[in-house]
């Protein structure tokens, strides 16, 4: 039964614009879809391989900066700029991951060291004024275009961006789903549940941890490429630890033990502040209280309530 949930959800999402009237609702849902993609890719590393990475915001931010700089300053085509952006993220993840996993860093040690690398990259972005415009951030005015039979379509307008965000989520989801359904997912499960046993059964623990980290980070980069062009603005805040913590909250809220849980988490956490109709201070208190409540009462997340208590292998 649960396997059809994503398909039904996709059908609803495709039809949703017929019923959405206001641009602000479109904006909330579009942000929600992009952040949900980040959460899904993060859960590949965290929920499925058991590694608490704080590098996710860095991957996301670096890709956002590179595409924006290549398109705005060097007049690259947006779609071509995605290549070098993702390649850079892959290289960074490969180096950071190789260092952490070679030294067999686990749990909090892994979290702290990835956090340090992430901060290092953020500080480079903040201080490299000539390229990144430092703390002021960059305005992204260019609009990517998409080929269509009736001529190029500019990626602009609430409706178009809604579908772009949905496409990013679908790509992220399908890539993760394919990986997890294969032998790679089995190796990830072995690492998450009992690394030593996995190793004696022939699992190359180092390689598969690295693979999970690189795939997850590159997918986060993919979201970053689009995110900057949607918001029209890029700032070092994208690479902050707060951003990583937001992603973790989404995954915990939605449910760590499934691919679909983080989608719910991403959408709910993005919409929540806008749905609570109170003054700013009260709103943030209620937001925090809801998050804490859900995590305490539903350790398996919102989606965990509906799902059979079983991890797919």
């Amino acid at each position: 039964m649960m396997r059809f949930v994503p398909l039904v959800a996709l059908a609803c999402a495709l039809a949703a614009p017929l019923f959405i009237r206001s641009d602000s609702t479109f904006a909330i849902v579009t942000f929600g879809l992009l952040l949900a993609s980040l959460a899904v890719s993060f859960n590949l590393i965290f929920g499925f391989t058991g590694q608490l990475s704080f590098f996710h915001a860095a991957s996301f931010g670096v890709a956002a900066y590179i595409t924006a700089i290549l398109v705005s300053d060097y007049r690259w085509n947006f779609w071509l700029a995605i290549g070098p952006a993702l390649a850079t993220v892959a290289m960074l993840a490969l180096v950071v991951g190789a260092i952490c996993f070679r030294f067999k860093l686990r749990e909090f040690y892994f979290a702290v060291v990835t956090m340090a690398f992430s901060e290092m990259i953020r500080l480079v972005v903040v201080n490299w004024n000539s390229v990144t415009n430092g703390t002021l951030g960059m305005t992204v005015t260019a609009q990517p275009t998409l080929w269509s039979p009736s001529g190029p379509v500019a990626l602009s307008g609430a409706r178009v961006w809604y579908y772009v965000a949905l496409a990013v989520l679908v790509v992220t989801y399908v890539v993760c789903q394919r990986v997890l359904a294969s032998w790679i997912g089995r190796c990830f499960a072995a690492i998450r549940l009992n690394e030593q046993l996995g190793e004696t059964l022939g699992v190359n623990v180092f390689l598969y941890k690295l693979l999970s980290f690189v795939i997850g980070s590159v997918l986060a980069g993919l979201v970053g490429c689009f995110y900057g062009f949607y918001t029209g603005f890029i700032e070092p805040q994208y690479l902050s630890i707060t951003q990583s913590l937001d992603i973790i909250s989404m995954v915990l809220l939605g449910g760590v033990s499934s691919l679909f849980g983080p989608v719910i988490g991403g959408l709910v956490l993005t919409a929540l502040p806008h749905v609570i109709d109170l003054t700013a201070e009260l709103r943030i208190i209620l937001y925090g209280a809801i998050l804490i409540f859900v995590i305490l009462v539903m350790p398996r997340g919102i989606f965990g309530l509906f799902e059979r208590p079983h991890h797919a292998v």
Binding site: C187, A189, A190, L197, G198, G202, H310, V313
Partner: peptide, 16 residues
Amino acid sequence: LFPELTVLDHMRIASH
């Protein structure tokens, strides 16, 4: 073992 998994899941992992 992998405590939260079933016997068959164990075998699937070992089949990689």
